[in-house]
Computed example of a mutant assay.
Amino acid sequence: MKLLLAVLLLSLTACSSAPDYRSASAAGYGYSDTELGPNYHRVQFKLRGKNKAKAMDYALQRAAELTLSQGYDWFDLVEKETLVDRKTYEVTTRLSTASHHRQTSCGLLSCSSYYQPDMMPELDTTTDYTEVRIDIRLGKGVSPQGTSIFQATEVLNKMKQ
C-alpha cells in the first residue's frame, strides 16, 4: 500500500513538473493552433492554475512564433476569450482483487491463516486550469496602428526577458 501511494505521488509530481510552455498533450495542457482561413488562426493555451496573465502571455508567445513561421511580421488580435475552470476527482477506497495479504491468527492450540484483500485508495485531486483562446490575423510589412497589433519579434524578445 505504501508503494502504491509513493507511485501515485511520484506520478502527480511528474505531471506537475512538466514545463508550462509546450505543445498541448493528451490532457490538453499547453498550446495548440488551428488555421481558420488564409492568414487567420486560432491559438489556444491551457495552463494548470488560475494565472490568467501567464496563460495569455503564453498564447501571445505561440501567436508570435506562428506568425514568424508562416513568414509574417505582425499579428492582429481579433478576438480573445479566457476560461477558468476546475476539474475535481473524488477519493474512494476500494477492495483490491489483484492484491491481498496473508493474516495469521493463533490461539492456545492452533493457528489459522486467511487472506485479506488490500484496501486501495483512489486518486483525489482538484485541478484549476485557465484556458486562453485568441483569434489572430497575420500581416506583413508596415503594421496598422492599434492596441490589438503585435510585432512578433517584439513579443518573443519580451518573453525571453
Results as ranks from 00 to 15, higher is better:
Tyr72Gln: 05
Gln44Lys: 12
Gly49His: 04
Leu10Ala: 11
Glu81Thr: 11
Arg94Met: 11
Leu83Arg: 09
Ser96Arg: 06
Thr130Trp: 05
Asp57Ser: 10
Leu66Pro: 02
Ile134His: 02
Gly107Tyr: 09
His41Thr: 05
Thr13Gly: 08
Asp33Pro: 06
Glu154Asp: 07
Leu83Pro: 07
Val7His: 14
Tyr29Cys: 02
Lys54Ser: 01
Leu10Arg: 02
Lys46Trp: 06
Gln70Ser: 11
Ser96His: 04
Gln151Arg: 13
Ser113Trp: 01
Gly146Asp: 04
Arg102Asp: 09
Met159Gly: 00
Gln161Cys: 05
Gly30Tyr: 05
Lys80Arg: 14
Ala27Asp: 12
Leu47Phe: 04
Gly28Tyr: 03
Gly107Met: 10
Ala18His: 05
Leu12Tyr: 08
Val91Gln: 13
Asp73Pro: 03
Ala14Lys: 01
Glu79Thr: 11
Asp57Pro: 14
Met120Thr: 11
Asp73Phe: 00
His100Tyr: 14
Ala53Ser: 10
Leu109Pro: 01
Lys2Phe: 15
Thr127Lys: 10
Thr126Pro: 08
Gly37Tyr: 00
Met1Phe: 13
Thr67Tyr: 01
Gly141Glu: 08
Arg94Lys: 08
Asp128Trp: 11
Ala26Asn: 15
Val132Ser: 00
Ala63Thr: 13
Pro38Ile: 06
Arg94Ile: 01
Leu68Pro: 03
Ser113Arg: 00
Lys80Ser: 08
Ala26Leu: 11
Thr153Asp: 07
Gly49Glu: 03
Gln116Arg: 15
Phe45Cys: 01
Glu79Tyr: 12
Gln161Met: 05
Glu122Gly: 13
Thr104Arg: 03
Glu154Arg: 13
Gln151Ile: 10
Met119Ile: 10
Glu65Asn: 14
Ala98Asp: 09
Lys2Val: 15
Val84Cys: 03
Thr153Leu: 06
Leu10Val: 07
Val132Tyr: 04
